[in-house]
Design a protein around this nucleic acid. Sequence first.
DNA 1: CCGGTTACTGTAACCGGTTTCATTTTTGCA
DNA 2: TGCAAAAATGAAACCGGTTACAGTAACCGG
Lengths: 324, 324
Amino acid sequence: MAGVSVATVSRYLNNATLLAPDTALRVQRAMDELNFVPHPIARNLATNRTNTIGLLLLDIGGNFYSPLLRGIEAVSSEAGFDLLIHSTGSSHAGNARKRTLTEHNTDGLLSFTDALDNVELTRLNRIGFPVVLMHQSPPSGIDIPVIIIENQEGARQIVAHLIKVHHRKRIVFLQGPPGNEDSSAREMGYCQALREHDFPFDPNLVAIGNFDTEYAYNTVKKLLIYKVEFDAIFTGDDDSAIGVLQALQEAGIRVPEDVSVAGFDDSIFARLLNPALTTIHAPIEEVGREAVHQLINLIRGDYTEPRITLPTELIIRQSCGCNR
Amino acid sequence: MAGVSVATVSRYLNNATLLAPDTALRVQRAMDELNFVPHPIARNLATNRTNTIGLLLLDIGGNFYSPLLRGIEAVSSEAGFDLLIHSTGSSHAGNARKRTLTEHNTDGLLSFTDALDNVELTRLNRIGFPVVLMHQSPPSGIDIPVIIIENQEGARQIVAHLIKVHHRKRIVFLQGPPGNEDSSAREMGYCQALREHDFPFDPNLVAIGNFDTEYAYNTVKKLLIYKVEFDAIFTGDDDSAIGVLQALQEAGIRVPEDVSVAGFDDSIFARLLNPALTTIHAPIEEVGREAVHQLINLIRGDYTEPRITLPTELIIRQSCGCNR
DNA sequence: CCGGTTACTGTAACCGGTTTCATTTTTGCA
DNA sequence: TGCAAAAATGAAACCGGTTACAGTAACCGG
């Protein structure tokens, strides 16, 4: 319609070569007339780029992910990338793990916590495919950028707060799911705070909360049944804190008068709990933003930080005993 | 490597024709050896199908979306579709609205609330492209399947509860954002309940909460300043309820003793509020599941329901005055 | 033993763009 | 005015599959 070859149209679309102004005009006019939109798929095939980044999550449902998604979506869409999301946890057990998101339909992959296993990470790394990890370190020897948060320092601070300000002496720590990296780092912070105040480490005070409301609820019930003595609980994450508060309340234990409670994450609901939860703010939206930045750098072949650690912040509310 | 043509490999991959068992074996062996994975993009181009469904949201960040995403992800991944997500709200104002998700890179589109405007809906409908709407009706005359929830009946029930059980006489209703369909339906339910109990409709008792915590907070503050008298607030949604509770508490008004509060949605935090929020459960995960089902039917050319209304359920907690 | 099916597989066009290379047209300057 | 270099464009291969069509070999009943 514009009286030019497809090659010229392509050049016009990509501003590849300077076109004669007159030609450009004719192409533009024809495009308007025909309501022409270039076919992304054909483009992908020809350029071997998809302009899409893939996000792998274990379980997209968690309310924990809202800020993460917000961060990721914001910067990826700003950079002109589409977002392909797949929840690896939802793959029906037994079913052979078919990888829907791979080097073939994305330009790069974002993996949260343990969404991608080490075998796959190694393979992707070997073929030089861009991957950025969030809240998860790569297998040793494999070089993949990582975005994490200051788990240990955050945990240390909040436990120190319980010790110094509220004079708590027997502080329970609730671990997350087995193998969870966040959880182990937080546990190290917990231990560090104990050491710094010359408190002995008592293994009886460490239990499993699994980063899960109900699990934590049951765990606290058990602690009470076994008459484990404690005057504070650092719940590992905020989800667990809900269960902890409930279990304590049902047992007639007052928070924070009898027992201080502290969480980690600063989820949306933390300030809504009763009492409002003292916790560590995890900059999870920022994690998402930073991860996409790094991934895009990787895709473009620019320099990337091997490891970015985002700062956490102590948020004092009432569940520890402050502001009463 | 298998000594066959690409056509045969393609046939093997798609079980198109019966292959000679011996040939199939050779192809399979070669595929294993070469670690061959068919290139989805090339496939898409050839078949004109993407095996991807697009989800359009105004703002992916809301915690409201977690269950929706869970529902959508679950059934789409089960059906073998990838999920492409785009937040139309994040498009930086002023920037020409470039449609990243279209008929060219998805097989069908899911739109929540007002993510897709009527112009685009009309266009998509004209070219016969599969679209399913959630919490939003299509422009009149346009035939697009819709998934909605029983807003009016839910609202009627909860307002009737406030009237019959708690003998509330002056019940405030907080509207959502202007033009929001959920909000108007809920307002109709509110009015219906008033009528059914021969209560007059008092326009002074209707204010705007904007489905937003802070907005609702300020609105209630204003009601108090203007000394509008009320003994209950139906907050329109749960987010607003947070702000309402806070404003009332700061004014020294006791909930539920002085004023009953009721929400809508049954968000994850509803039971965590103090007092726990009486609300209407909105089956939002189910909305997501159903929407994907309908969309897939549409894509396959099967029959689809023009309009599915999912039931809501009254959830009695403490903020209305029950269970004390 | 033969013609007609049937079963299997190869050839080549096609999906809708991008890009290399070649060709044609301009342009700049001696 | 002439010619080399630069600018603009077209031809065709290519991305990696699918699929209509055609061809060959094995199979069948009469």
